[in-house]
């Protein structure tokens, strides 16, 4: 498409805006009519270290949820559910604030290497 597409990055076309729209089609004044549509923009690949949850240790206090700057800890019914790896930037704050060390940070490269090794073995 156009060469000027860097802002879309890992994002997708939003409902109202497509990358290739001309000036007549784009929303007026750059208004955005889809609240919270940044969720369709994935920042997960910024991550170099990945938080991994240790289910057995977790006491579901949700301190990690409180302190994640990227709203990347998903809770269900007031309990830790999962990480939103599409948006988690790997800052490591959740692991640092967890009172029972139920989150460990692993290098993404290391995880990739292990994945690859495992696939090769199969």
């Amino acid at each position: 498409m156009t060469p000027f597409n860097r802002n879309f990055g890992q994002g997708r076309n939003t409902k109202a805006v497509r990358l290739d729209m001309n000036w007549k089609e784009l929303t007026k004044a750059g208004n955005i009519y889809e609240p919270g549509n940044a969720a369709t923009y994935e920042t997960g690949d910024w991550r170099t270290i990945r938080p991994v949850w240790n289910k057995d240790r977790c006491i579901h206090c949700l301190i990690c949820w409180r302190y994640c700057p990227d709203a990347s800890i998903i809770s269900t019914d007031g309990k830790f559910d999962s990480f939103d790896y599409k948006h988690c930037k790997g800052c490591g704050i959740c692991a640092s604030v967890c009172p029972v060390h139920a989150i460990d940070m692993f290098s993404e490269d290391e995880i990739d290497r292990r994945e690859e090794a495992r696939k090769n073995e199969e």
């Binding site: 156009t2 802002n7 879309f8 000036w23 007549k24 007026k28 004044a29 750059g30 208004n31 955005i32």
Partner: peptide, 20 residues
């Protein structure tokens, strides 16, 4: 229908909004 106004436009959209 919440709306975001005064958003940050980069070179990929600013020009079009000026043309409007």
């Amino acid at each position: 229908n919440p709306v975001s106004m005064g958003n940050f436009d980069m070179y990929d959209f600013y020009f079009e909004h000026k043309r409007q």
